[in-house]
């Protein structure tokens, strides 16, 4: 039966992140906030980021509703960017969006992504790429102080 193939998509670490998401809470007074939707499936992420006076991410949290992939991706993203500078985080967002569509990056960049690098497998499930990228788009747009919107808007800008 075909469900063995799912193992490559739903690795244990991904299921673990979706069952017990890290940083899943709102930061009411965050310096950067955004709500991003995936209109295809109705998923929504509210991302709150606290930048300190050196433009480093001193705290980050998300709320919202979504599938296993989008929830675990958001959880892994918050782990990966915590403590990073704004520019570092933006670079990581770029690495991630490139990785999931199969663009090559040096291993060093992928290592930066920590657990999130596991989602490179999503490439083989094209219908689910947006689920994985939603939180990273949200990160990028929030840091650039762009308005709330749909994940499709971000795609068009690329």
């Amino acid at each position: 039966m075909g469900l063995e193939k799912l193992n490559s998509l739903y690795r244990e670490v991904i299921l673990d992140h979706s069952d017990h998401p890290h940083h899943k809470h709102a930061l009411p007074d965050a310096t950067h906030k955004i709500t991003l939707k995936n209109p295809t499936c109705g998923d929504v992420i509210n991302l709150d980021i606290q930048l300190d006076d050196q433009d480093r991410i001193s705290d980050i949290g998300f709320t919202g509703d979504g599938c296993t992939i989008s929830q675990s991706s958001a959880s892994m993203m918050t782990d990966a960017v915590m403590g990073k500078s704004k520019d570092e985080a933006l670079n990581m967002a770029k690495t991630f969006s490139d990785m999931v569509i199969g663009k090559k990056h040096p291993q060093k960049d992928l290592d930066e992504l920590q657990d999130a690098a596991i989602l490179s497998n999503i490439m083989t499930f094209p219908a689910r790429i947006k689920c994985a990228t939603l939180s990273w788009w949200a990160l990028q747009r929030a840091l650039l102080k762009q308005p709330d919107g749909n994940v499709d808007d971000s795609e068009k800008e690329e």
């Binding site: 075909g2 799912l6 998923d43 979504g66 599938c67 992939i69 499930f125 219908a127 689910r128």
Partner: peptide, 15 residues
């Protein structure tokens, strides 16, 4: 406890 998107992907793997 499962998002329908996950369900649809799993069902697709079963054809």
């Amino acid at each position: 406890n499962l998002h329908p998107h996950d369900v649809a992907t799993a069902l697709d793997m079963e054809g």
